[in-house]
Design a protein around this nucleic acid. Structure first.
Length: 289
DNA sequence: CGAGTATCCTGTCCGC
DNA sequence: TGCGGACAGGATACTC
C-alpha cells in the first residue's frame, strides 16, 4: 500500500543517508522477506556483503540500490508490499518488533533496517539488464507518471486497447506503474470517471485527463510527505506524511464529496474497496449490443 | 495470450 | 473478556 509518493519519500531518505556507503554485515531474521531470492538468505548475504551502495533508484513502487564501485553490477531490490519500511537507525536503537533484515556499514554509522509487519514486501539482490540497468524483476514494469520519459499518449493508447475496467487497468503495473488503491480512487475522482468504466470506451481526452489527474494527485501527496493513516507508511526516520488529510474519496464513505457534497460511496472491488462520488462519477450505462 | 481470481500475511477493530 | 469475522491489499501463480 505504500504507493509511488510514499516510495519516493523513502527513496529520497535513502539517497541522503546510505548512498556511497559500503555494506559490512547483513542479518536476515525472517525467510519470507527474502523469498524472491533463489538461494534464500545465504545468497542475499553473499551477494550484498562488502558492496558499495552507489545510487538509489525507483520505478513505480519498486525501489533499488545500485551495487558496485564503478558501474551498477547488480541491485538490492526492495518492494515494501503493504507494510514494509526501510529505516535508517542508530545501531543502539532497540530492534523493532517486525525487524526482518539488518544492514550494517563499514563506517559504523547508522544501520539500514527492513521492518515489515505483514511480510508482503521483501529484499532481493538481482542482476541488472539493459541500457537503463534495470533490475530484472523491474524490466516488465511500466514507467510511472513522474518519470521524465513517461509517454502519456502511449499510455492512453494502451489503456484504450485493454478490455477491462478502468481501475483494474490502473492497478496493473505494466501499463502505468506506481498507482495503488488509494491513488487510483483519487485519480478517478479528479478526472470524474467511474472505476468500472470499460477501458475500450475511453476517449483520448478522458484518458489524458485521467493520467494528468494521477500525476497531480501523486505530486501533491509527495509534497505532503506521503499518505499515512495507520502509521505503516513512514519515511526513513519513521515519520508519517500528511496527505491523508487531503483525500477526497478514499476511506471517506458517507462523507460529502468535496466537489458536490453527495455522500461518498464504497463498494467491494477485487478483494478491497472502491470509493467514488455517485454524482461526479456516474456508473457507465451498460452498452446494449 | 489476455483477463480475472485465489493466495500469501498480521494486526486492528467491531459486534455479540 | 473473549472470540470470530471483516478489513487493510500488491504482486504473482494460477485457471480459463
Amino acid at each position: 500500500m505504500p504507493e509511488l509518493p510514499e516510495v519516493e519519500v523513502v527513496r529520497r531518505g535513502l539517497a541522503e543517508h546510505v548512498t556511497g556507503r559500503r555494506v559490512r554485515g547483513v542479518e536476515v531474521s525472517h525467510p519470507r522477506s527474502v523469498r524472491r531470492q533463489p538461494g534464500g538468505a545465504a545468497e542475499l548475504v553473499e551477494r550484498l556483503d562488502g558492496q558499495l551502495l552507489r545510487a538509489v533508484r525507483r520505478r513505480g513502487k519498486y525501489l533499488w540500490l545500485e551495487l558496485g564501485d564503478d558501474a551498477p553490477e547488480a541491485a538490492l531490490l526492495a518492494h515494501l508490499g503493504m507494510s514494509g519500511q526501510l529505516l535508517v537507525q542508530p545501531a543502539e536503537r532497540p530492534d523493532e518488533k517486525h525487524l526482518r533484515i539488518r544492514l550494517r556499514f563499514d563506517d559504523d554509522g547508522p544501520e539500514l533496517r527492513f521492518v515489515d509487519q505483514r511480510t508482503f514486501g521483501g529484499l532481493t539482490v538481482t542482476d541488472v539488464t539493459g541500457p537503463d540497468a534495470l533490475p530484472v524483476p523491474v524490466a516488465h514494469i511500466g514507467r510511472d507518471p513522474m518519470d521524465p520519459a513517461f509517454d502519456a499518449e502511449a499510455a492512453v493508447g494502451g489503456l484504450r486497447r485493454r478490455r477491462t475496467g478502468l481501475k483494474r487497468a490502473l492497478l496493473d503495473q505494466t501499463l502505468v506503474s506506481g498507482i495503488g488503491n488509494i491513488y487510483a480512487d483519487e485519480s478517478l475522482w479528479r478526472a470524474r470517471l467511474h472505476y468500472e468504466r470499460p477501458t475500450a470506451t475511453l476517449t483520448r481526452p478522458e484518458g489524458r485527463r485521467l493520467l494528468t489527474a494521477a500525476r497531480e494527485v501523486m505530486d501533491e501527496a509527495l509534497a505532503a510527505g506521503g499518505t499515512s493513516f495507520d502509521a505503516l507508511y513512514v519515511d526513513v526516520h519513521g515519520d508519517s506524511g500528511y496527505f491523508d488529510r487531503a483525500l477526497a474519496v478514499y476511506g471517506q464513505q458517507d462523507r460529502p464529496c468535496p466537489r458536490c457534497g453527495t455522500p461518498v460511496r464504497r463498494a467491494p472491488f477485487m478483494n478491497r474497496s472502491s470509493y467514488w462520488c455517485p454524482t461526479c462519477q456516474p456508473r457507465p450505462r451498460r452498452r446494449h449490443p
